[in-house]
Simulated scan of single mutants.
Amino acid sequence: MTTTATSHRTRPPAQPDSLRAKRLPWYAAPAIAVAALALSAVLVYGTSIGGPVLVIVLGAILYLVGLFAAANAVEGRRSARNRTWSALIHSAFVLAVLPLVSVVWTLVSKGADRLDVNFFQTSMNNIGARDANGGAYHAIVGTLEQVGIATLITVPLGVLCAIYIVEYGRGKFAFAIRFFVDVMTGIPSIVSGLFVLAFWVLIVSPWFNDGRPSFSGFAAALALSVLMLPTIVRSTEEMLRLVPAPLREGAYALGVPKWKTILRVVLPTALPGIVTGVMLAIARAAGETAPVLLVAGGGAAINTNPFENNQSSLSLFVYQQAGDASKYAPARAWTAALTLVALVLILTIAAKLLARRNRLSR
């Protein structure tokens, strides 16, 4: 009796069915993908109904069908659905990344032709249609000054507005602010340029220019501020709302005033998200052409004074060179576009590193 009980207790437990279920080998999915592309190529090119794009699309459909059929036959219907949806998710990721990779590759391949010292040290002043030289130094200076001034104007105003909406705003006034911020989010850039043209250039600037309207980089910065403000307000508002309420309540319980809680607890916690929103606004402002064309006028000469005379920007430089009849203009346009993307990337990385360092130092 004792021996029987002991052997019964020491008998190994039965393995669950999931551990003994059949599974497709690791090479099944790649093999199905290759077979699907081969069959798709035969069908498309054999019937002459399309090209490489149709081969890829039809191959993806055949791959999903083949993967579902193979998994259903070996692993069961539930596992087949899981594999199919996983493949769809991966395909969506690839489709989302492909345009980005294509844009970066096009910019690098076509913009590398004029990546030389002359491009970054000269302007287009006195450059003719048959001159292969000429650069975007004046446009780089204009972009940095205009976006920098717009950032100095917009970031404090946008962050303070978001703080008021989240921490203090109650009633109809806060609702009105939130409503107008949402409306401003959809304003076309040409409208902001027309607003600054009608207000600053035609009404205010004559007071400082002997009664004559004057284009300037500062006017372009004002127009860019109108575009940046709603992005900064909305992103900062959402980041402040994500700060856990117990952090605020803990500070209040220790007797910390509300303004100091916001300054020392809420803002540092939401800082990475706020920086991301600011960089998104800066990226949009740096790529705008219509406001700069309307209120800054553009120009071929170097102008380091944003408060007087015409001033260009990289986005406006790309627009002008893309429409120029010179055979050397497209190369300048591509290099300027690559410079603009690189500039925004460098600013974004620097801002992220600065925000991370400040957070770790606390």
Score class of each variant (00 low, 15 high):
T6C: 11
R357Q: 08
G287H: 06
N309C: 14
E308S: 14
A70F: 07
I282R: 07
A331Y: 07
T3D: 14
R264A: 12
K110W: 03
I302S: 09
N305A: 08
L293I: 12
G76K: 05
N209V: 03
R241C: 10
D131L: 15
T261Q: 09
A251D: 01
R78C: 03
D131I: 14
V265N: 01
P99F: 09
A245D: 05
L144W: 03
V191T: 02
L197H: 09
Y319N: 03
L316F: 12
L64V: 15
P16F: 00
F199R: 11
N72D: 09
P213N: 07
A21F: 09
T348A: 15
G250I: 02
A80N: 04
R78G: 06
L224E: 10
V226F: 07
A296N: 12
M1C: 08
T4N: 05
R130A: 14
P244Y: 01
R78K: 11
A87Y: 10
I165R: 02
I302Y: 03
L316R: 14
S313Q: 13
S361I: 04
N72S: 14
G273D: 03
P306S: 13
H8S: 05
G111V: 07
H90T: 13
Q321N: 09
L107I: 10
L157N: 11
L247G: 01
M279N: 03
I302D: 01
V344A: 12
T47A: 11
S315Q: 07
E288D: 14
F317Y: 02
F179E: 13
R359L: 14
L88W: 08
A162I: 06
Y45T: 10
G299P: 13
A150E: 02
D182E: 11
F173W: 10
L115V: 04
R359T: 05
S79E: 12
I127W: 01
G50Q: 05
V196D: 08
A36G: 06
A245Y: 03
I274R: 05
P99T: 09
S214C: 13
A283L: 15
W259I: 00
S313T: 11
A223M: 09
L95M: 12
